[in-house]
């Protein structure tokens, strides 16, 4: 049941990412018409204003969510693993999930940094003079933002996985110690 659930989530993630990727690639391979270039020039100032607001809101999200994701591992997972270990109990499954979570957290940090740099680059382009470059930069930032969202989904999944590993550990602990009734 657990494996099936993870398989479904994995397939869903792959579908979303590949859909976005192919959508963006398809959009980029189409030659840009004069009408579209004109549309970008006309609307890019308001688009840049929207992007600037998104840039600030995403930075806030990164700080607040990042702090929470960080605390999940440093204040709870790692500390509980240490306590299990100090009691000479088997914490292998819990440590394995924690390690996966930490790897996902590192990927989240790296992907967010790449996204922010890409979005800042787009904001620095003079879109009235370089509309195509601006459009491509926004498309690049869009792909990178979707990657950050995938990282967030993975982190949430690992938070659930740790909870499941904890439940399994507890069940086993009560079975061995005869407590919990």
């Amino acid at each position: 049941m657990f494996i099936v659930k993870r398989l479904i989530i994995g397939i869903s993630l792959a579908t979303v990412v590949s859909g976005l990727f192919f959508g963006i690639v398809a959009a980029q391979t189409q030659p840009m018409t004069d009408a579209q270039i004109s549309q970008i020039k006309n609307n890019c100032v308001s688009a840049k204003s929207t992007i600037a607001r998104l840039h600030a809101n995403d930075a806030l999200l990164r700080v607040n969510r990042g702090q929470m994701y960080e605390s999940m591992t440093t204040k709870l997972m790692a500390r509980f693993n240490a306590r299990v270990d100090s009691n000479h109990l088997d914490s292998k499954d819990l440590e394995s999930v924690t390690q996966n979570y930490n790897t996902a957290l590192e990927t989240f940090r790296t992907d967010y940094q790449a996204y922010e740099e890409s979005l800042s680059g787009a904001l620095n382009i003079d879109c009235t003079k370089e509309p195509v470059t601006f459009y491509d930069a926004v498309a690049d930032a869009r792909t990178k933002r979707s990657r950050v969202h995938v990282d967030v989904i993975k982190l949430h999944q690992y938070i659930d996985d740790y909870s499941a590993a904890f439940d399994a550990f507890t069940a086993n602990f009560y079975k061995l110690s005869g407590a919990g009734n």
């Binding site: 929207t50 992007i51 949430h156």
Partner: peptide, 19 residues
């Protein structure tokens, strides 16, 4: 931690930005 589906949606799509 899971209450917010951070970085969801597609606010940078050309349609949303009217590009």
């Amino acid at each position: 931690a899971k209450a917010v589906d951070a970085f969801s949606g597609d606010p940078l799509s050309p349609e949303v930005l009217e590009l």
